[in-house]
Computed example of a mutant assay.
Amino acid sequence: MATFERIKRIFGSGQSERRAAPRSGVPKGLHVLVVDDSPTICAVLGKLLSQDGHVVIKAGTGEEAIALAGSELPDLIFLDIVMPGMNGFAVLRALRREPLTHDIPIVMISGNLQATEQFYVQRFGADDFMKKPFGRGEVFARIQALTSSGRLTVREREQAAVTDEPVDQTVQDAIPDIAMPDPHDR
């Protein structure tokens, strides 16, 4: 434990300071669509992004993702490959065929790192691939890479201006703690 404390002193006193510092190369106020059939992945990715000042929209199915992408026009989409019903490849193809959503950057995510999946991701026009499980650093590295390449920009929106105030977390955005029983279930 002494080693851990020494590392904390060398690299800073805690995560809250690191999270409060602005990320270089990552625009603020992105509207991000997270598409995954796992509520846990949606909650984790949603929390990571909203803590950094981004607006998160969530979809649990491919069909819902296509509808939300067309109506909300997000700046970025994180899209799971393996989903029941319409899989991520079918969603990617549909989004690339639609003129409204054709240019939205898409990062495909999957827990199965197969060479064939990466091949199809590139072939169908995804911008990047991220393997599950992922960490905070990897998520923002993907966003920074897309920003640096010029593929990712914040769109002008008619809605209320984006502020630096933290985004309120609702009960739906709470990350489930599967290791502990729910105290309300007694």
Results as ranks from 00 to 15, higher is better:
Leu68Ile: 12
Met86Ser: 06
Phe134Val: 02
Asp80Gln: 02
Gly85His: 12
Phe124His: 12
Leu100His: 11
Thr116Ala: 14
Gln159Asp: 15
Asp37Cys: 07
Asp168Arg: 13
Asp75Thr: 11
Glu98Met: 13
Asp80Pro: 06
Leu100Val: 14
Val139Met: 05
Glu98Arg: 07
Pro166Trp: 03
Pro181Lys: 04
Ile41Gly: 07
Val167Phe: 00
Ala2Phe: 13
Ala21Leu: 00
Glu117Pro: 01
Lys8Glu: 12
Met1Cys: 01
Val34Thr: 13
Ile7Glu: 03
Gly135Ala: 06
Leu30Thr: 03
Leu92Glu: 04
Ala161Trp: 01
Ile81Lys: 03
Gly60Met: 07
Pro74Ser: 05
Phe129Asn: 12
Ile81His: 05
Val56Pro: 00
Gly53Thr: 08
Glu17Trp: 00
Lys132Glu: 07
Leu95Ala: 08
Leu79Ser: 07
Ala90Gly: 14
Arg6Leu: 13
Ser24Ala: 10
Val26Asn: 02
Leu146His: 12
His31Trp: 09
Pro39Tyr: 01
Ile104Thr: 15
Val107Ile: 14
Phe78Gln: 11
Phe129Ser: 10
Thr3Gln: 06
Ile109Val: 15
Gly14Asn: 08
Leu146Arg: 10
Arg123Glu: 06
Met83Asp: 03
Leu30Tyr: 03
Arg142Lys: 14
Asp75Gly: 03
Gly12Trp: 04
Leu30Asn: 01
Pro22Arg: 00
